[in-house]
Write a protein that binds this DNA or RNA. Structure first.
Lengths: 345, 345
DNA sequence: CTGTTAGCGCTTTCAG
DNA sequence: CTGAAAGCGCTAACAG
């Protein structure tokens, strides 16, 4: 901030333009001048004003992250921090800044994002999750702002996205449980307006079908509900003679809650009920018992999203293949919660 | 971005300066012109370029958050996300942007932060945690960049900081355990280079003294160690006749790990050993058993840090009282993990 | 109260 | 290859 390009030019005894050219590295500068400029730059630790650069280049070299509404404890899910870490690490390495934005209501959220874009502070956004009806996605689309979605959009096609194959992952969980001898497998879902939650549920249903198993609506629980007031319903179903012997849970944190609820009902995991969940946050391993979980490579997901965005920015006009959807591989980590094979028929 | 102040001026039939004055709200503009300008602004959704503003005002209206090195799973502690939420919410409300920065090594970290400051992208920083020897703090101090520290610095005095009274909090935990009849109370500490870890340990020791209890070095465990390879040592001490009957643990996540380790050793919480930990992240409640934890108001901590920074910025030259240290109140939330009073003498 | 004029620090023409 | 000049969008200082 303190030292400008003008000062460098003065000291090096060349014009500002020459310094600019020397710094850009793209343009021809006489070797002697180049050397002189580089020396001064190092000496006085010159660092060009990102702000001035932005003004003239009309790009911000910054990406906005929209935090899901801080409604729930949901955001404090380590999932997001891991995602953010992946994004920030990659972005910084490419000299992009990450700006975090949030808002108390959906409207405030949009206002905030709008301010960032219209003010020229960001070039685009990475959306950390997608709802079925997502005002932020609509907003981006409508204004033609570039963005990468982590997840999937039901509504729009041609958008850049990075995602897990959640259906396949859920299928993998079911298959694993089937292998362990389970035939009555339930599902604990997340908020039904989250695409990820729906996808996982669909994968679960499909896998049941493919395994020739029947699907009972009573075996599907709403996770949020479960944790707040659903003890009774859980208790009821778990006391039926044909209760599920295994559960696929859409998120580790929810799985933790489920285990606690089951614990109160004196249902033991995995002895009485097996459990597989999603995301494989560090906590899955610390749980009692440790939870089998599908590692979806959260950091990698974030890293890739940032890469996609940045590449896309740099090749914006070169028709760089058009919108694409990338899938990050997942892997089931088997732990105690699903390790006891059973044979109840 | 698309529409400039020039356009507004043209449409309103006034000069650019008038529009600028009308927008600033600080200066006198004829009512008629004011109205006209406001109308146009709303109509074409004019939003002044934050970048241009930055260039001329030499302020960025942005704060940098330095993520602790992504070494450990530590960062994925919900603690940080909660802190960030608090900061972002407050900052955005005051039209400040939050830029997240990180680096693989301490050196990269500094380079990243330096780039942000020198490039004029940020006005200052909020440091999310402090090590005993903290290069980032040194760097800020040395360059005179404004910052607020969440935590405490051993090394420097006159710096703005927002903190928990960790000694008192730890004392509270000890007192609570004493009330429940415990006399042999151990401590599980965090990395010894973290100020917060040290403070909590000191509070623990002091409280023991004040309660007339003796402090045994063997009753103090290094948390990190414990989780990785310390089962054996834990096992050893827990089998001594005079083993602790209660533990104060410096962080919820570590407490979770401890519970799991104890579980393997068939030591039951709270029946055989009581537990109190710090931070009260949502998980503390989901644990089996639910963990007594000291709620330090993480969100509030973040919110306050942002407030302090912003106020300080705005009154920078008016000698706004000089550096200060704010303490956010804490509260012990008692749960099952410490609920069974014991009387072993 | 208003318009004109000069920049903020940098990139980018356009002549040399 | 180089320097001078124009301008990115806005604010601030100066005459009216």
């Amino acid at each position: 901030m303190a030292v400008t390009i003008r000062e460098v030019a003065r000291r090096a005894g060349v014009s500002i333009s020459t310094v600019s050219r020397a710094l850009s590295g793209q343009q021809r500068v006489r070797a002697e001048n180049l050397r002189k400029v580089q020396q001064i730059v190092n000496q006085i630790e010159f660092c060009p004003s990102a702000v001035a650069k932005s003004l003239v280049s009309r790009t911000a070299n910054a990406i906005c992250l929209v935090l899901p509404k801080p409604t729930a404890k949901w955001v404090s899910n380590p999932f997001f921090m891991e995602l953010i870490r992946g994004i920030v690490a990659r972005a910084n390495r490419s000299n992009y800044d990450i700006i975090i934005s949030s808002g108390a209501s959906e409207q405030e959220e949009l206002k905030e994002v709008s301010r960032l874009f219209r003010g020229g502070r960001v070039d685009g956004a990475i959306l950390l999750s997608s709802r079925k009806e997502d005002a932020v996605i609509d907003f981006m689309k409508m204004n033609g702002y570039p963005f990468v979605l982590i997840g999937r959009s039901d509504k729009y096609d041609g958008i850049w996205s990075v995602d897990t194959d959640n259906r396949a992952a859920a299928g993998g969980a079911v298959n694993h449980l089937v292998t362990m001898g389970h035939k009555r497998i339930g599902f604990v879902s997340g908020p039904s307006n989250l695409v990820v939650s729906v996808d996982r549920m669909e994968g679960y249903k499909r896998a049941l079908r493919e395994n020739g198993l029947t699907w009972h609506p009573e075996w599907v629980f709403e996770g949020e509900l479960l944790l707040n007031s659903g003890y009774r319903s859980l208790s009821y179903f778990m006391n039926q003679p044909d209760r599920p012997t295994a559960l696929v849970v859409y998120d580790d944190l929810v799985a933790l809650g489920v285990i606690r609820a089951l614990n109160k009902l004196e249902i033991k995991v995995p002895d009485d009920l097996a459990l597989v969940s999603f995301n494989n946050i560090p906590l899955a391993e610390l749980s009692i018992p440790p939870i089998s979980s599908i590692d979806i490579g959260i950091y990698h997901l974030g890293d890739t999203a940032a890469q996609v965005f940045i590449q896309n920015m740099q090749h914006a006009n070169s028709e760089f293949g058009g919108p694409k959807r990338l899938i990050i591989p997942h892997e089931l980590i088997v732990r105690e919660s699903s390790m006891i094979p059973i044979h109840i028929f």
